[in-house]
Nucleic acid binder design. Sequence first.
DNA 1: AAAAGTAGCAACCGCACGTAG
DNA 2: ACTACGTGCGGTTGCTACTTT
Length: 316
Amino acid sequence: MCSLTKSTSSCSVDDSDLRRGPWTLEEDNLLIRYIARHGEGRWNLVAERAGLRRTGKSCRLRWLNYLKPDVKRGNFSLQEQLLILDLHSNWGNRWSKIAQFLPGRTDNEIKNYWRTRVQKQARQLKIDANSSQFQGIIRSFWMRMFLQKIHGPTSSSAMSCSDCTSQPTNYASHHSALPPQPQWQEVHNQGQSDMAITMQGMEHHEQNSESERCTDSCLSSMESINISQTSQLPEYRTSPFQSVANNGDYSTSDKDCLIASNCNGMEAINLLTMSALGEIGNSVGNSHTDENGLVGCDFEDTLWNMDELWQFRNLQ
DNA sequence: AAAAGTAGCAACCGCACGTAG
DNA sequence: ACTACGTGCGGTTGCTACTTT
């Protein structure tokens, strides 16, 4: 009865009967209609009962990567791109893990983005895309682009070093008024140029151990930002951390830091950076915010402007 | 205008892992 | 404990659209 030999497939359709390649509109409709009525369930059954001559795997992939209603399409926002960069430095090619932090984006999409854009850029710069050097260059370059957009071309040279690393990031529960405008400061750390944003006129507050850990970790590995109102950060208040937290891998703090932990200890990911970029992006002309509060703007082209990036690399 | 080259992305493949029987 | 099956993941392939020559 069953002629399928592959261990990963169950037996419902003869192998020669199985369709491959691009999905047709009709197939899409069959799958959508079936899932709308019966839910996702077991994919081999879905394929069979929906009347599709496809493997369960193929149906699953098509649904998750393309047909599912909450799949977001189109260019990655600035925040998403920076987030991918940060998350990839933490987890490497664990695309599904990274995708958890980008609602509506699939692991496949992120993987493709990384391979086509980021790796291409790294190749052209003759730097390993996984290296900290590449991460540092890209971050610093992007930050500079922001500054130039905001203050004009001379602003970046006016940045000065300060003792911002000693300042706590814990403001959220203490300020109810709108925060002062962010001041950008460049932090030189062990030969690498990391960027940090701190708030002018902020107060030092007592830190609990959690926020201390967070602060240390944030500043040691990536740019850090201090924002006084987490309520301005809709995209990270409810997701993806809360959903991840349900699995026990992460915990959220109602302070300013989002703590990520794994078996190797505590790792902090200061995702507020991304939100801050959103704030800044909004303050710069030609930007827009999508329905999820993520910022898209006309930086898309300049982000990967090879000429400028190459010049910037040589300055490092 | 046509051929060649390139980029982007959807889809597939093989492997690993979890789980039910 | 073993096996078969279902699912998820990362790597790879191949098609299509776009760009360059």
